[in-house]
C-alpha cells in the first residue's frame, strides 16, 4: 500500500512538473518577481543613503501590519490593493528620486512584488530592502507605532 501511495505521489509530482513546463499558465519554482527581478536589491546602509537623498519609503505589508507599526515616513502600498492605490500614490512615487520598498512574510515577499509592479509602471530607481521591521528598529531607525486610544 505504501509503495502504491509513493507511486501516486510521484505521478502527481511528474504530472505537475510537465504541466507547468508545457502550459502557458504554468508557474516556475519561484514567482517571476523573484526569479527575474526588475528591481534592485538594497542593504540597510544603502537604503539609509537613498532615504537621505529623498527616496520614498514604501511598506509593502498588509494594512493591518502597517497600522500596528511601520518604519517612520513609510507609506503603505501592498499587493492586494495596488491597483486601487496606484492612482492615488502613483504621481507622488513617480516624483521621488528613488523608491525603497520593504516587507516580507514567511511565504510571501510583497516588497519584491511591489518593486516589480513599480518598475512595470515606469519607475526607474526601485530598490527592495530585504529586511524586517525589527532589523530597522535595531539599527536605531525611526519606527512609528500608533498607540490605540484608551477609552
Amino acid at each position: 500500500m505504501l509503495l502504491s501511495l509513493a507511486i501516486i505521489v510521484a505521478t502527481s509530482a511528474a504530472a505537475g512538473l510537465v504541466f507547468n513546463l508545457v502550459m502557458p499558465q504554468g508557474i516556475g519554482w519561484l514567482p517571476a518577481y523573484i526569479s527575474s527581478p526588475a528591481w534592485q536589491k538594497a542593504d540597510l546602509a544603502q537604503a539609509e543613503r537613498l532615504l537621505a537623498q529623498g527616496a520614498m519609503l514604501v511598506d509593502a505589508r498588509e494594512a493591518g501590519d502597517y497600522k500596528l507599526a511601520h518604519a517612520g515616513g513609510a507609506v503603505n502600498l501592498y499587493p492586494g490593493e495596488i491597483k486601487l492605490l496606484w492612482p492615488l500614490l502613483g504621481d507622488i512615487l513617480k516624483a521621488a528620486p528613488a523608491v525603497v520598498v520593504y516587507g516580507r512574510y514567511r511565504s510571501r515577499w510583497p516588497a519584491a512584488q511591489i518593486g516589480q509592479y513599480l518598475r512595470g509602471q515606469g519607475l526607474a530607481r526601485v530598490y527592495v530592502w530585504d529586511g524586517s521591521l525589527a532589523q530597522w528598529k535595531a539599527a536605531g531607525l525611526p519606527v512609528r507605532a500608533p498607540r490605540r486610544a484608551r477609552p
Binding site: L30, R106, R108
Partner: peptide
C-alpha cells in the same frame, strides 16, 4: 497557499 504563511517562499509554488 501563501496566504496561510506556513511554508517558506521557495516551497510555495
Amino acid at each position: 497557499v501563501a496566504r496561510y504563511d506556513l511554508i517558506p517562499l521557495w516551497l510555495v509554488n
